[in-house]
Design a binder for these strands. Structure first.
Lengths: 332, 332
DNA sequence: ATGAAAGCGCTAACAC
DNA sequence: GTGTTAGCGCTTTCAT
């Protein structure tokens, strides 16, 4: 067995509780004995047993992190690791550990286990696994939590963080206008998702603010792209710049553009959400609206710790600002 | 406070120890009382406190997973999440939790904390953070561990898993030969890394086995690529296919190839290690040597659990087979 | 087959 | 300022 608080106590000639007090700074102890205890701890290479500590004071000093690995979307996977890293960094700074799980089983079994078996003091989880039952359970057990991704329906009080998709679109439009474009088109994949609807809103709003009256939102498909490009070539469509939902869409559109010999960025400016590893190597390198996934994790963790401290459930959301990286697919 | 083993005992009218025995199947209990205890547990919604359990039997039922988020290599980040997911899945199946950390601090402080504060029963860590001191510590504390990535110098006994880079190259060469190419060239970035040296070895070995006497290994740089392409165009160099270190290299080479109007896959076949999200959308879609990162995590976890069971340190390594995905940058 | 009791390592309420 | 003691919730000998 390893060296315990009792060994230290015996070694120094004090009571175990005194040692505990020194460790936790939970009472005033004479500098003299304090020093002797610290020395003894160093000498005997003492390290507190985390489980005993947790058991004794009812706090686990660990937070749970649920990831949804089921999400095969290349991009969300690609930089998720940064979120994880950020969360762990924040936790570490506060002396907390991070228990990670991908709740494959339906019913959120593992998440519930985390709660019921008292494994964690708080939880960060993806919006995809939220449901009424889980929220109720979290509330019943008074386990603070933060959601990654904006919930569609925010019935009960809850904290969440998400990318500021609305701002992302606004940024894109602004950049395009400043670069001399004046007739933008937004290519989306599925307007029903909450992030695409935010992007669409930001796009429309900004266009109106900038007094652009000729802007369009299109659903991406090869046929649609070809039709639009035809109209642009023939002069029917005055569109002079595209904002794409993601790098794959951007890349495919770029191919079609090249097929009809339209010049980028001269005739058509191209800007895309997300920043895949290859984006800067494409021809031309893509101007992108990047997302700071590290920041997102960081904010989620900080929000969680605030909740854990205050004990009363807050309703606070944090939007992570997007960042425009200007490259050569838009005029500069 | 939540319901404990005592509550169950009282409710049923037995001793707490009996309840414990039922939970752990650690003694023969009459079906009768067994049933009554199970019923009571369901009724009172009992869930064992994981910390108390760990404290009592000295086992944490959790494993540690160290990630090196410092590694900014886009690809290793991109699919690392799959490894994490695999590890957690295996652990979950065995009733274990996963504590994750990115040991930013030098000195492996957190890893040591995991060990000394008895937070984990075993650890999976990246080869980058291995050093003699850490290995000694792990050994001293009898904490089983598995390394992700092949260590350069394998002094002490240890378990590790890695991608079978040698086989990856052999697979590439084989595919090229079968597709009718006969003079391959391997483009590497830095021959000194262990994985590139394995790839180079696999490449050379396979070429010899296949009785190819005209094969080359080149260090990637734009000038080198241009020079080689010039020689190919002018007929001095008979090379008819390239194997690239990664997708970025492949993409850059592809650009240069297009500049000199060489046809892919007709005149030059192209195959690359790794499979970035955009690889299949490139023109032409890239034939790749893919890596099963899920499998890698899975194997690491399984190896760890074997070690934890047997208690005596084994020396076993597992190479994860690569997989060729034939697309259109090579003839079919 | 089950009860009693000690103990895992640490904390905290209560003494003095 | 420090000792005493009673737990935290569970496991595990030792009885019977």
């Amino acid at each position: 067995m390893s060296v315990t608080i009792k060994d230290i106590a015996k070694y120094v000639g004090v009571n175990p509780s005194t040692v505990s007090r020194v460790m936790n700074g939970t009472a005033s102890i004479s500098e003299e004995t304090k020093k002797r205890i610290y020395d003894a701890m160093a000498e005997l290479d003492y390290h507190p047993n985390s489980f005993a500590r947790s058991l004794a004071n009812g706090s686990t000093f660990t937070i749970g992190l649920v990831i949804n690995a089921g999400n095969k979307d290349a991009f969300s996977n690609a930089f998720f690791i940064q979120s994880v890293s950020a969360i762990e960094t924040v936790a570490q700074a506060k002396g907390y550990s991070v228990l990670i799980t991908n709740d494959l089983q339906s019913e959120n079994t593992i998440i519930k286990k985390f709660i019921l078996e008292k494994k964690v003091d708080g939880i960060i989880l993806p919006v995809q696994c939220m449901d009424e039952e889980l929220v109720k359970m979290l509330d019943d057990n008074k386990v603070p939590f933060v959601v990654m991704g904006e919930p569609q329906k925010k019935k009960s009080k809850m904290c969440w963080v998400d990318v500021d998709n609305e701002q992302g679109s606004r940024q894109a439009v602004e950049h395009l206008i400043e670069s001399g474009y004046h007739t933008p088109m937004l290519w989306v994949e599925n307007k029903k998702t909450i992030f695409e609807s935010k992007r669409t809103k930001g796009f429309s709003d900004m266009c109106k603010e900038k007094r652009i009256d000729d802007y369009k939102v299109c659903t991406y498909s090869q046929e649609n792209v070809r039709r639009v490009l035809e109209d642009i070539v023939s002069g029917i469509d005055k569109t002079d710049c595209f904002i794409c939902a993601n790098n794959i869409v951007a890349y495919n559109i770029l191919k079609e553009i090249k097929n009809v010999w339209i010049k980028v960025p001269e005739r058509i400016g191209l800007i895309t959400f997300d920043n895949y590893p290859l984006a800067e190597y494409l021809e031309p390198p893509l101007t992108v609206i990047d997302i700071d996934t590290y920041r997102m994790g960081e904010q989620a963790a900080e929000l969680l710790f605030e909740n854990m401290k205050d004990k009363e459930r807050k309703t606070e959301s944090r939007l992570i600002p997007t960042q425009l990286i200007a490259r050569e697919s838009t005029r500069s």
